[in-house]
């Protein structure tokens, strides 16, 4: 009995360094942020720090800037995640069939993913969305349409921010789906084909149900990325004009580093974490746990 206990203790002791490191870099900041969210703590007046209970959270609910950012983030995430999921899957389907130069196409399609987000934001703002010299409006002019001032008007700034994100993130979905399709049992599709299923029927009734867990995982990944999206939109629009593209992460950044209201900003970040946790838990439950059992 004592030998077993000693054995267990020595085994668990090997985990201590990892747990300490994890605690320091992952758990401590979260606990600290949660604690700070209950304080009135402005870096402009560090000495005036005081415990305010749930005041920061109550203020958030009535703060039009925060509510606006929550709405914008939800809409933005829904559009970008939905679009990239569909486009990424379709591209993966295209790449499933062998053709000459397939690997080159696959490599080229992944280029956006390896670029720095700040560079993407800047390049799209200056070279793509610029109203007078940008590529998008130049193309529109060719077909007789006068394009708008993309990143500086409503609702085009939001549309521009979403499209740039879709361009950037679609390859990630494509790669995951491509890998999943590569290991997909071809015999199942062949059986469906023999039974007379059309191409789209095979995709909808055979491939998608079997890849349900991959879809759920990719969806979770994409939602967590886009819900926290910052760099591209910040560089592209600065959160404007007039807060129309001020995502939650930009709101938190502004409150923390511009207004220096750390307590309030942490409260905003914690609430953001709660929202994303709820969404992800629902998806994980239906897509991975229950969906996994069914699959």
């Amino acid at each position: 009995m004592i030998d077993r206990l000693k054995d267990n203790m020595s085994r668990y002791s090997f985990l201590i360094p990892s747990l300490v490191a994890l605690g320091l870099v992952a758990v401590f900041p979260v606990i600290y942020a949660v604690r700070s969210s209950f304080y009135s703590w402005n870096l402009h007046r560090p000495a005036a720090r005081e415990f305010v209970g749930f005041n920061n959270f109550v203020k958030l609910v009535t703060d039009y800037t925060y509510v606006n950012s929550v709405s914008i983030t939800l809409l933005y995430t829904a559009i970008t995640v939905g679009s990239t999921m569909i486009l990424g899957f379709l591209l993966a389907l295209l790449l499933k069939k062998p053709f000459k130069g397939r690997n080159v196409v696959r490599a080229l399609l992944t280029v956006p993913m390896i670029m720095t987000q700040v560079v993407i934001g800047l390049n799209w703002r200056v070279f793509m969305w610029e109203p007078d010299y940008g590529l998008i409006n130049w193309l529109l002019r060719l077909v007789g349409i006068r394009g708008p001032a993309w990143v500086s008007s409503v609702p085009f700034a939001f549309i521009a921010a979403a499209i740039t994100n879709i361009w950037f993130m679609t390859p990630l979905v494509m790669i995951i789906m491509d890998a999943s399709l590569a290991s997909f049992p071809q015999s199942l599709e062949d059986a469906a084909k023999i039974d007379g299923a059309s191409y789209w029927q095979r995709i909808i009734y055979v491939i998608i149900p079997i890849l349900k867990r991959t879809f759920a995982f990719t969806l979770l990944l994409r939602i967590t990325i886009d819900f926290r999206m910052f760099d591209i939109v910040h560089v592209l629009t600065g959160g404007g004009p007039a807060r129309t593209t001020q995502l939650l992460s930009i709101w938190v950044y502004n409150q923390a580093l511009r207004v220096s209201d750390m307590g309030y900003s942490n409260a905003g970040a914690i609430l953001m974490m709660v929202i994303i946790s709820i969404i992800c838990s629902i998806i994980a439950y239906f897509g991975l746990i229950r969906g996994g059992e069914q699959a």
Binding site: H44, T65, V154, S260
Partner: peptide
């Protein structure tokens, strides 16, 4: 003032709303 950024948020938003016609 330490609140300057918040003040500038208000005035820039005021201007952007006018400039966009909102």
């Amino acid at each position: 003032l330490p609140e300057a950024h918040s003040i500038f948020e208000v005035t820039s938003e005021m201007w952007h709303n006018v400039a966009m016609g909102a």
